[in-house]
Amino acid sequence: MANKSRYDLNKELAQMLKGGVIMDVTTPEQARIAEEAGACAVMALERIPADIRAAGGVSRMSDPKMIKGIQEAVSIPVMAKCRIGHFVEAQILEAIEIDYIDESEVLSPADDKYHIDKTKFKVPFVCGAKDLGEALRRINEGASMIRTKGEPGTGDVVQAVTHMRKMNSEIRRIVSMREDELFDVAKELQVPYELVQYVHENEKLPVVNFAAGGVATPADAALMMQLGAEGVFVGSGIFKSGDPKKRAQAIVKAVTNYTDAKMIAELSEDLGEAMVGINPHEIEILMAERGK
């Protein structure tokens, strides 16, 4: 039978998620609510980022039994997080046939220097990035999807906006360069020349790029889409809010019709209380600074 790399198939699964919303869930019940509300995938984790922040201490991969419970509860793809650099947690997630691994700064890093060599795995990885260099370094390590880091668990979209704008302005800079200048960019970003060349020619990352970290409202989600995100992760924003089901549905529709302000206005009505936000200047742990 003909060949196509596992990496291609993994990048292509991310393509199928485009225009969708991936929601953090902690129980099978929440997973079902998310699926019924129109999530295109769920992220299974024991505690959502806002609670991880509140609890402090070391945060690790979730109990595989809990993840399996969520896999059985829904028919959409199930993702789960492992710690940065913790390749054994990743091996465990692969062993339970997770659809996507998030090597995530939301958990406590297990390695302060090296990320996981993601080329050694059959299952796909998504990684966070706050600029183009981080994104291309993760892709070089085998990530088949990228998301902004944002600042998870804050309900504050400012960091996701900053990261998306930064990545896209760096892409525009590379597109505008002469070809003989790309060698120096590769050196500056610490990535192979071929990746820089891809960005120069295609005006985009070689993989799908979602927004994540601090998205709490339909307007936040639409903002990220208008800034160029191909889809949105919503972590604490849904199940930390007053009416999770309604808010989840509204965010899904806002992502589909992200330029229709009239529809987003209607979707924003009567959503109940949004999650209580915290300002990144008021918090002690900046998760986005983990894993560069």
């Binding site: 998620l17 028919s75 589909t256």
Partner: peptide, 14 residues
């Protein structure tokens, strides 16, 4: 291609 659960739901709601 995409997620049929999402498309089926949005087809109806929109």
């Amino acid at each position: 291609g995409g997620e049929s659960t999402v498309m089926g739901k949005l087809l109806r709601e929109l």
